[in-house]
Simulated assay, not measured.
Amino acid sequence: MKKAPILSSPIIGKHISLRLVGVSDAEFIYTLRSDKKAKFLTQTSGGIPAQEQWIESYKKRESAGKEYYFIIQSLEGQPFGTIRIYDFQEDSFCWGSWIIQDDAPSYVAIESALCLYVFGFYTLGFKMARFDVRKANVQVVAFHKRFGARIINEDTLNYYFNLSLEDFKAIPKVFAGFLPANLSYFTNLSKGE
């Protein structure tokens, strides 16, 4: 398994940034995960104190480079949601805990996914992304299919997806426009190469 870096600054996108979660984010995260949209995520219990404890435990895994949990926010710091990358294996990572407020700008979903893929593929050096989506979460299933992700398995509740680095490089140009063109690893994507 690769040794992941310790992040000292947020991942900056075109309109958003991904900053590491802190204990002070527990109330925001608990509120998000208590919303009707969170029905497709693992359920939380125990209120804000339990969320604070979970974050404290997570911060140890973050320090060890085993996972990263982010607040998706505007460049000015307004929080919109969360996204997490974890379960690092030899050449792949898993991602999830992706939830965005209903009133967030429309670009937040696309840009947050792109930023996470760039981080996983280019910063961490993985070749494959893995994730699961509840079958009932029809909009998110459709989003991932448009992005080029492939369903590799399914069970009663979930579809299990893969998206390779090569698949990511071939994403439709319309999606590529959601990242800053001045990023060196993005040059080939923005040209559609």
Rank of each mutant, 00 (worst) to 15 (best):
S112N: 00
T42W: 12
Q139N: 12
I29C: 11
S24K: 13
L157I: 09
P79C: 04
S97Q: 03
W54Q: 05
Q53S: 09
I55D: 01
I6M: 07
L157M: 09
G47K: 11
L179H: 00
K135C: 03
N137Y: 05
Y107M: 00
D91I: 14
L183K: 01
Q73G: 00
A170P: 09
L179D: 00
Q43D: 06
V108D: 01
G47T: 11
E67M: 09
K37G: 06
K3F: 03
F178G: 05
V141H: 02
N182M: 03
S63T: 12
I99W: 03
R33H: 04
I12Q: 04
D35C: 12
F147M: 15
K3M: 08
H15M: 05
L114Q: 01
A176K: 05
F121V: 08
P172F: 10
F28H: 01
E52L: 01
M128Y: 13
Y122E: 12
D87C: 08
S8V: 06
Y58W: 08
K127R: 07
I85Y: 07
L20F: 08
G77H: 02
A26K: 07
F161G: 13
Q101K: 14
D25N: 15
I71Q: 01
W54P: 06
K169G: 14
K39I: 15
T44V: 14
I85P: 06
Y58R: 12
E166P: 11
I151P: 01
P10G: 07
I85Q: 00
